[in-house]
Each structure stands twice: as C-alpha cells, then as structure tokens.
Design a protein around this nucleic acid. Structure first.
Ligand SMILES: Nc1ncnc2c1ncn2[C@@H]1O[C@H](COP(=O)(O)OP(=O)(O)OP(=O)(O)O)[C@@H](O)[C@H]1O
Length: 733
DNA sequence: GAATTCCACGTTTTT
DNA sequence: CGTGGAATTC
C-alpha cells in the first residue's frame, strides 16, 4: 500500500479524490506533479487499477521522463504499462495501431520542422506562387495554427485573398504529406481526433480502455488536445488535471490557459482542489516571483506560502556585455562549487532563446566546468546526421519524397534537377511514388517497363541508387538489424570517404555519424520504426552525455518548466530579449513573457541570480541594451545588486573592447569577480589593525563588495568595507 | 551537373 | 555573424 504521509491534507485530498473530474489548481512548487504521480500510484496500488488502463500526459519529453522516474521509484515494476508520454507520442502510438482507418499507413513518418518547412516551400512552388510574397515560415505558422484549432483545409476561413492562397497551400501541403505517407506534428493530434470522431467504435475502444486520464501542466493544452481529452474520457469521465494559469507559456502553440475555466464549465461536477503551500522555494523567492506576476491582469490570485524561511535576496548583476554576463555566471558557479557549499548539478542557467547558450557553453568549457545543454537540436541539424536519417527513413518508407530529394544525390552521383524532374514525371505517369519507381528500376533493371522513360545519361545513376535502396529494404525484410543496416548504408554509399576529407571538420562530421550509430545501436531491439519515431518526437533529448552527474544545466525558460534547482541564473534580462522584441506589440504576448520570467524564478529553491548586459552584439555590431521592464517590478528590498552600477560604466569602443578581450582571453575574468556570499557573519570575532577586537553585527554584499557592521570593544559600532578594512577573523571560543 | 562565390536574409519559445 | 539560397564559374 502506498504511503500518503508525506502529503499535506489538500494534497492527500487530491490524490485520493473519488472518481470523476478533478482539477488541481495551484501555484508553483505546491506539489502538483507530485500529487499527479502519487495519484497514479494510488490508483494502481490502492484502487487496483491496471497500469495499461491509465493514460498520463505531459507536454515535454523531459517532463515525461521525469514522471517515469518518479513512478519507477514509487512503484517499481508495478508501474509498467502506464501510457505515459507527451500528447504527441501517445497519439503517434494510437495512430500506428489504427492505420487501417486513416489516409496513411502504419509505417508513416513524422516530418520534423525542417521537413515541414521544405514541404510548404514545395507546395508554394508547385502552385507557382511567389515565395517572397508567401513566406514558407509564415504560411507554415498559419497552417499549424489552423490545425491546432481543428481547422482542416476545407474549413479554412477565407476572408481575404491571402487566406484564399493560404488555404490552397494548406491543401497542397496536406496532399504532399500524404503522398509521402507522412504526418507533421500537428497531424498527430488532429488525425487522432478525427479518427476518434469518425469511428465511434474506435473511440469507444480507447475511451473504455482509459479508465483514468491524468494531465500535467493542463494550462498549456490547446483546442485539439482538449478535444482529444474529452473524446478519450467520454466513457469513464475520470479526468485528473493539474495546472497553474500563471505558468502558461505555450500560447504561440495554440495553448489557451482558459481551458482551465472551460474545464470547470464543461464538467460542472468537477472537484476543484487548491494547494497553497510551496515546498520548493524560500519566501523571498516567492515574494519576488509574485511581484513579477501580480502585474498581469485578469488572473485569479492564489495563496502561496513557504515554510522554508526568508532566504537570501535575489542577486541582480549588470554585466558590461554578453561575454561578461557569461563569465559572471561561470565564476559564480565555480566559487560556490569551490566553497564546497554546492555541487555543479545544483545550478541551472536559463535564457529566453537558444542562441544565448553559445557563449555560456564557451565560458563553461574555458573554465573546465561540466555542463549539460538541454534542447537546442544542434546535433540533428547537422547535415551528415540528417542525411543518414533520411536514408533510414527512405528504407522505412520509400514514399518519403522529402528524404528522397535530400539524399538521392548523396554522395554526388550525377542526379541533378533535370533528372529529378524526369523521375517525378515518370513516377506520376507510372502511378508510383518516386521511391517505388526507383526500387523497381533497381530490381528489374532493363526489364522494367519504365526503363525506357529515361535518357541514357540519367538512367544509370537512378537505377544504381534504386538497387541500393531495394537491397537495403530486402536486407531489412530478411532480418538485418538496425545497426547492421546503418553500417551497410555507410558502406554502400562510401559515406566516410564522402564526408571525412581528413580535415578537422571532416573528422568531426564522421564523429557525428558515429554518435548517431551509437544511438541506433540503442534501438537494436526496437528497430527502425521506433528509432525514427524517437528521432522525430524525442529529439529534445539529453542524448548528449551527462557529465558525471555533476554538471550545471543550461536550458531555455520553456524547457525549465516543471523542474527545480537550488540555484537559478536567468540571463538576458534586457528589453528585446526578455521580454522578447517580438512580443512587445501584443499585450497578451507580453503577459506571456512575464509568465516566462515567473516560471524561471519559481524554479529556484534557494537562490536566484538575475543577469543582464548593457551591451550585446546581436548580429554584427554591438547594441546598447535597456534593462528589462520586469526588473522594475521587483522591490529593492528583495534585490541585492552586485557588480558595477550603470553610472559607473565607461563607454568603450568596439575596437578597444575586442583588443582587450583578445589580450585577456582565454582566462578573461570580469573586473567584478563575483562575490557570492559574505565572508563575515554575525557573531564572528574579528580584529582590526587600529581598533582591535570586535564582534560582527551584520554583513551583506553590496556593489560587489562586502559591507560589515562591527561592534568594537574600543570604539563601538563601525561600518566597514571588507576589501579595504583588512579585518582578520579570530577563531571562535 | 558540381563546386565556388556572393548576397540577402532574418532571428523565440517545442512537439 | 552565420546561414541558406541564388548566381556564377568550371
Ligand atoms: N507534502 C510535501 N512535503 C514535502 N515536500 C513536498 C511536498 N509536496 C511537494 N513537495 C516537494 O516540493 C517540490 C515541488 O513539487 P512539484 O514539482 O510536484 O510541484 P509543482 O506544483 O508541480 O510545481 P510547478 O508547478 O512549479 O512545476 C518537489 O521537490 C516536491 O518533492
């Protein structure tokens, strides 16, 4: 039987709530996720619910993994079988099983963002539209928004000519996807909803199966997801959702925190449970967070208190530029670690945009401090990695036109635009996909009825590639393992010779290939399908090695949601970055930026460092930065400034700065070596060269130095600056 | 058809 | 600044 002792009354009420709908509405650190996890354990151990009758949904893979861990430690193997994952992963799982009802078959591929972009572009070209006028990025965004709101091409509202065009592109894009036997991320949700709506018996099967559905971070559901939940819960109606409107940060993805209100309206019988105690942060951290979020309109204020004590003020550090910003972070962490008071893994550095991680990484590397970078799909963005993934995708699903277009000429085998057009034309005439036609050419050679459709010059490389592809597919059908396939592709295409030209970059490219092979090896059991699905859905990974478990974490504010750390650095607190420039015109977006900062601050258990830079090189030239408007909302009483003040700044020309940093690197340290905590503490006995012995009354960090109040036996009370006063600490006793 | 050079471009956040 | 795409040359 599970143990409910380490829950407070409200939490326990939530965990053991009777059947029906439950809405847990509570601020950060109040144990929402803990309650949700305990609820699952309670259902299984206490109520005898079988794991596979439980569906638990999270928004990010990280959150899913985290919950998996917590469940594992709570239940051990008894938790096996729970459908736990992101909306997208759970939907993909359903779609693969039910492919017979769908417009694609069960070896469909999931197109990643790049692929989607490429397909939109292709759709635009095929319709002979001007890419300048109809930017693939913005059209894609429009399509995605539509999908998130359950709008199919047929329903797409056409109020303007532009809408008309967008609708046409949307239609074409969908048919390109289906021709490739592919779906995009949004389709995973949309098609699942459609599946359940159009096929009542399928809906019934799943709705019957999922006796209990639990959703974390419910404030970030969008319309499709909400619909999906209602469909899946349509028989048992046991919906357990937890959330906090103030932490809604996915508006741009269609999320609508008002789903929390909608939930109450749609399920009037729902039980609403509030949690009020924060177990994570000190009161000071909570006060600061509240000061930030209180400025948002239309929010239901929540009581939240902490018994962890007042704690320390938030540190605000204003660096000269982004290099000094990164150096401050690294220095401070290093000092804490050296002092023995913290481990590297106690720290997280959070930022608004992934681009900000670059300088941090460099600084960490220079200092020899281990770090873990979350997200930033750099590895998968690499050309060589993408190429190989496309080969694999093609083996898995030869209809995948995007992958084919990408690798048909890799390494260069003489297939250019002309040949490609000819291939597509011939394929259309033959009623096959380009990939199928290639395979046929490869298998039958000159016997193929389609051989004659090509010129003598183009047919050879095509047939050559076709026979490779056919060979790979045959090998897989005959049981070749995933790593085996991987090696065979490398061998057949002479890939190493192609990318590894002996240069450093070549070496690095080959290393990346090896890394991908290592990943493939981990999927030797699951096989190609599982591997590809994982690449598409879980590529936010901590696949990169975790350094000895002692690494600081670098991540975006979005990725930080749901996590907690003793020490949190939030960098880039400048106008334009946080809040981001693109949000400044829309009050709703601005409110979301504020929530983002709120989320960041509330990740901290003990200490928060807010960091900004007076000057940043955006692209090219340096630009003066204004402090983030959010900083103004933090009362001085909660803030401790560290380092130089703005009025002390001396303007420095870019040239001289560049020179200086060249001279000082790689061990460049900011002048304001970060002082992290007082050397002196109340009751310490100290000796001053002039005034003799005294007792420390108080000490605090101010402007990067320490101010100490001492009561001397000879002269009484004195306020001293530690770095100047030459005070000596005397042993106690 | 491939390789190289040049130029304009744009930049949030995640599945 | 670095990328992606187009124009240019081989
Ligand atoms: N009753 C409790 N006693 C002790 N610690 C608790 C209790 N409830 C929660 N905690 C701890 O408080 C911290 C925050 O819990 P949790 O992550 O579940 O909160 P949350 O509400 O999901 O937070 P957020 O919304 O910020 O993600 C965790 O470290 C958790 O272990």
């Amino acid at each position: 039987m599970i143990n409910l002792d380490h829950l407070n009354d409200q939490q326990r009420a939530a965990v053991t709530a009777p059947l029906g709908q439950v809405l847990v509405l509570a601020g950060p650190g109040s144990g929402k996720t803990r309650v949700l996890t305990q609820r699952i354990a309670y259902l299984i151990e206490g109520m005898g619910v079988r794991p596979h009758n439980i569906l638990a949904v999270t928004f990010t893979n990280k959150a899913a993994r985290e919950m998996q861990h917590r469940l594992q430690s709570l239940l051990g193997d008894d938790g096996e079988g729970v459908w736990l994952g992101t909306f997208h992963a759970n939907c993909a799982r359903i779609l693969r099983r039910e492919a017979q009802y769908l417009s694609f078959d069960n070896n469909f591929v999931i197109m990643d963002s790049d692929d989607q972009q490429a397909l939109v572009k292709r759709a635009i070209r095929e319709l002979n539209l001007d890419e300048k006028l109809y930017r693939p990025t913005s059209i894609h965004a429009a399509i995605s928004t539509a999908k998130n709101n359950l709008i199919t091409p047929a329903d797409f509202p056409t109020q303007s000519y532009r809408d008309e065009i967008t609708k046409r592109i949307y239609e074409r894009y969908q048919s390109l996807l289906r021709d490739s036997n592919a779906v995009d991320f949004d389709d995973l949700l949309l098609e699942t909803v459609r599946l359940l709506v159009d096929n009542p018996h399928v809906r019934e099967r799943y709705a019957r199966r999922f006796e209990h559905i639990l959703v974390d971070e419910f404030q970030d559901t969008n319309l499709v997801q909400y619909e999906l939940l209602k469909l899946l819960a349509s028989i048992h109606g046991n919906l357990f959702v937890v959330g906090d409107e103030d932490q809604s940060i996915y508006r741009w993805r269609g999320a609508d925190y008002r789903n929390m209100l909608r939930f109450e309206q749609d399920f009037p019988a729902c039980q609403k449970i509030l949690l009020e105690q924060n177990y994570r942060s000190t009161q000071t951290v909570l006060d600061a967070a509240r000061a930030v979020i209180d400025r948002n309109k239309h929010r239901t204020r929540k009581h939240l208190f902490s018994e962890r004590g007042a704690g320390e003020r938030l540190v605000l550090y204003e660096a000269v530029d982004e290099h000094a910003e990164a150096a401050f972070v690294v220095d401070t962490i290093q000092q804490w670690v050296n002092s023995g008071k913290a481990r590297g893994s106690d720290f997280a550095v959070m930022y608004r945009t992934n681009a900000q991680s670059r300088l941090l990484e460099e600084a960490f590397l220079r200092a020899g401090l281990p770090y873990r970078l979350v997200g930033a799909l750099r590895f998968y963005g690499r050309r060589e990695v993408k190429d190989l993934i496309c080969f694999l995708r093609l083996v898995h699903n030869p209809d995948d036109e995007v992958s084919l277009a990408r690798v048909i000429n890799v390494p260069p085998r003489g297939v250019g635009e002309k040949t490609m057009v000819a291939l597509q034309l011939a394929a259309r005439q033959a009623g096959l996909s380009a990939g199928q036609l290639l395979i046929e050419l490869g298998e039958k050679g000159e016997q193929s009825a389609h051989w004659g459709r090509f010129s003598g010059r183009s047919i050879l490389p095509l047939a050559d590639f076709g026979s490779q592809l056919a060979g790979w597919r045959r090998a897989v059908a005959e049981g070749l393992s995933l790593p085996g396939l991987f090696d065979r592709i490398l061998l057949d295409t002479a890939y190493q010779e192609y990318i590894d030209d002996g240069s450093n970059e070549g070496k690095e490219r080959w290393d990346n290939v090896q890394e991908l092979r290592r990943l493939a090896y981990e999927f030797r059991e699951g096989g190609l399908t599982a591997f590809l699905e994982n690449l598409a859905l879980v590529s936010d990974q901590d696949t990169l090695p975790e350094e000895a478990g002692n690494a600081a974490t670098l991540l975006t504010l979005h990725a930080a949601k749901g996590l907690e750390f003793r020490f949190v650095f939030i960098i880039g607190l400048d106008e334009g970055l946080l809040p981001h420039a693109r949000s400044k015109d829309d009050p709703e977006e601005m409110a979301e930026e504020r929530r983002l900062l709120y989320v960041g601050i509330t990740r901290a258990k003990d200490r928060v460092y807010l960091v900004r830079a007076h000057q940043r090189s955006q692209y090219g030239g340096p630009e003066i930065q204004e402090p983030s408007r959010f900083l103004e909302d933090l009362p001085e009483s909660l803030i401790q400034r560290q380092g130089q003040r703005r009025h002390r700044e001396v303007w420095e020309s870019p040239e001289s700065r560049a020179l200086r940093s060249r001279v000082l690197s790689p061990n460049h340290r900011p002048a304001s070596a970060a002082l992290i905590e007082p050397r002196f503490h109340p009751t310490d006995r100290v000796r001053h060269p002039v005034w003799g012995e005294g007792i420390v009354m108080e000490s605090r960090i101010q402007d990067g130095d320490e101010t100490v109040d001492v009561f001397f036996e000879s002269v009484g009370f004195k306020r001293l600056v530690a770095s100047l006063a030459n005070l000596e600490i005397l042993p106690k006793g």
